[in-house]
């Protein structure tokens, strides 16, 4: 499964989000989940199974498939919950709590 964290520039907000999703995946005990970051302009439908964006980018990213909106990019509770939900949607098993 591939998760892509996306923001407008592809190196600040999205990079921060990517690192926090990677932490959540690890905490949840999942494997086989690839997480990367990118700028909105380089992403197209099919670039990833799930796309995580901050709430301000959500509308602009809405045509890209399974898009998850984050209220905060540094709230690990929210990121852990939404990462667990995304993995469940895509059939990734994990051992930790969501």
């Amino acid at each position: 499964m591939k998760i892509l964290a996306v923001c407008s520039t592809g190196l600040g907000s999205s990079f921060m989000t990517r690192l926090n999703i990677e932490k959540a995946v690890k905490e949840l005990g999942a494997s086989g989940v690839e997480v990367e970051h990118a700028d909105l302009g380089s992403v197209s439908p099919g670039s990833a199974d799930v796309i995580f964006v901050g709430r301000d980018i959500y509308e602009a990213a809405s045509g890209l498939g399974d898009v998850v909106s984050l209220d905060s990019l540094i709230d690990m509770d929210e990121i852990r919950t939404k990462t667990a939900e995304a993995m469940t949607r895509h059939g990734v098993r994990f051992s930790g709590e969501g």
Binding site: S13, D56, L73
Partner: peptide, 20 residues
């Protein structure tokens, strides 16, 4: 610009940046 507030990380902290 459009969606420019995306640099708000939450909790009152913003990561201001542009492209290289």
């Amino acid at each position: 610009g459009p969606n420019g507030t995306y640099i708000d990380l939450g909790a009152g902290i913003a990561l201001a940046h542009a492209r290289p």
